[in-house]
Write a protein that binds this DNA or RNA. Structure first.
Lengths: 251, 251
DNA sequence: ACGACTGTGCCACTGTGTGGAACGGTGAAC
DNA sequence: GTTCACCGTTCCACACAGTGGCACAGTCGT
């Protein structure tokens, strides 16, 4: 279905470059200008994008796209189960807690509880990052069958977001060994230079990872001696969620 | 562009009924089964929906839709400016603070700061509600030209989400008068039976409302004498954001 | 006044999307 | 075991929806 494919590609491109005009977009996507314009008009009529406001010929997403996207499935159940654990974790550590879900080779932030420290990380609900750059992602990779993790990591070159990002699939796979042993993953500056994170996976009934909990905090607030402290707490919280997802009553 | 229109309608329908099968969906949308099936397969190939997991023939949204939706425009600037004010407001009141944006006749939650009380409202970032059912929505309506508010309210019948929801457009328009005078809107049980909210609009450079701040809390925690107290605080915070959006340095 | 850009509208061609009908599999009813 | 109703899947001839080259109008910087 060609036109649908193109239309959704346009929608995605708009989301990345908004606000964007017809010519610029058609150039970026190597698409005829008339086609691009028809797509934009159609998407506009359907209420997914809009070209109003100050620059009346440049298009941006409407909130409709957000409203629809936020209905991502599993939301209700995972969110409901994880929220209490997230609050407890946040209260115990004073740090920001993230609940994320996998999407292909990325992890997407589903929910967060902000910590109390005045210096905060400010991730945005709904945004995503490559799996190999986050503690959540590594925890997910470690919790899935090794063959699957290897396939994901080798499907494409691993992008480096900072100088500390691991870009070697084989090294990463070895690192996952350790994550599996200790039950949590720690990253320092692999996504943003000064941000560290501690993550652990939540498992569904099938034993496959369906989500992760993670702490996200400034690197200087996570000295090495705290790794196991926070790590154990996050792992325990994630495990509670896994058990409850499996049908067991919470402790 | 027929096929695109249908495809996006299917995507939206899936988001509302997930997980959903071919026949059920085709019936619900009054669409030929073969067409529905082709749409689902296409959307699946493009990574927007997936039919894996336990029920291998029922489709659900992937996180891709969420990731794209969360790039809704204005995000960066409004969020950046509003977050400090939200934190202050949350610290001052101990309650949950919401940042929402308008979308046609609805308001969509863009960001939230959770309060400290153990009894919490649990709204989900990205979800929306009809304007006339929320304090944020009323604050928005009051801040736009009256003709525009009237047009929005009269475009379609006003849905009642609870027995307390106002469904009379004219009465609502009169209520907006008062909101304009005092600078904030208060709702009690108009969206969920036991939830109250206090909202005020953030204005952009054009003077049009672009977003709102609101407090959301259990109704019993908002006795009438607190209305002006919280109202003033929310209005002041919103005004700070408006001024900063207009280019002025924050105080 | 010119040129290099925007965004917009037109229209003949063709290839893409349509949807009815038929197929194989699964589960409940009897 | 047999029947039936429903599921998801596949096929295919027809026709119309989508394509994209081209020409036009407005706006900016020179």
């Amino acid at each position: 279905m060609r036109s649908v494919s193109v239309a959704l590609a346009v929608l995605e491109a708009v989301s990345e470059r908004q606000p964007v005009g017809v010519s610029e977009l058609s150039r970026a996507m190597a698409l005829p200008k008339s086609t691009t314009q028809r797509m934009l008009l159609t998407l506009g009529e359907l209420g997914w994008i809009r070209a109003g406001g100050e620059e009346p010929t440049r298009w941006s997403l409407t909130a409709k796209a957000m409203a629809i996207g936020s209905r991502h499935r599993g939301d209700e159940e995972i969110r409901r189960i994880a929220l209490p654990a997230m609050h407890r974790l946040s209260a115990a550590t004073g740090e920001t807690v993230h609940l994320s879900v996998p999407d292909e080779r990325r992890v997407v932030l589903l929910e967060k509880i902000e910590g109390l420290h005045p210096v905060r990380t400010n991730a945005v609900v709904g945004h995503g990052a490559p799996m190999h750059t986050t503690a959540s992602g590594k925890a997910l990779l470690a919790a899935m069958p090794e063959a699957q993790a290897a396939a994901l990591l080798r499907a494409a070159p691993l992008e480096a977001l900072t100088p500390h990002t691991d870009t070697d699939a084989d090294a990463l796979l070895r690192e996952l060994e350790q994550v599996r042993r200790q039950g949590y993953a720690v990253t320092v500056g692999t996504r943003h230079p000064d941000i560290a994170a501690v993550g652990a996976a939540i498992l569904g009934t099938s034993g496959r990872p369906v989500a992760t909990l993670s702490l996200s905090l400034p690197a200087q607030r996570l000295p090495r001696r705290l790794w196991p402290v926070y790590g154990e707490q996050v792992a325990r919280a994630a495990e509670e969620c896994s058990r409850e997802l499996g049908g067991e009553r919470p402790a």
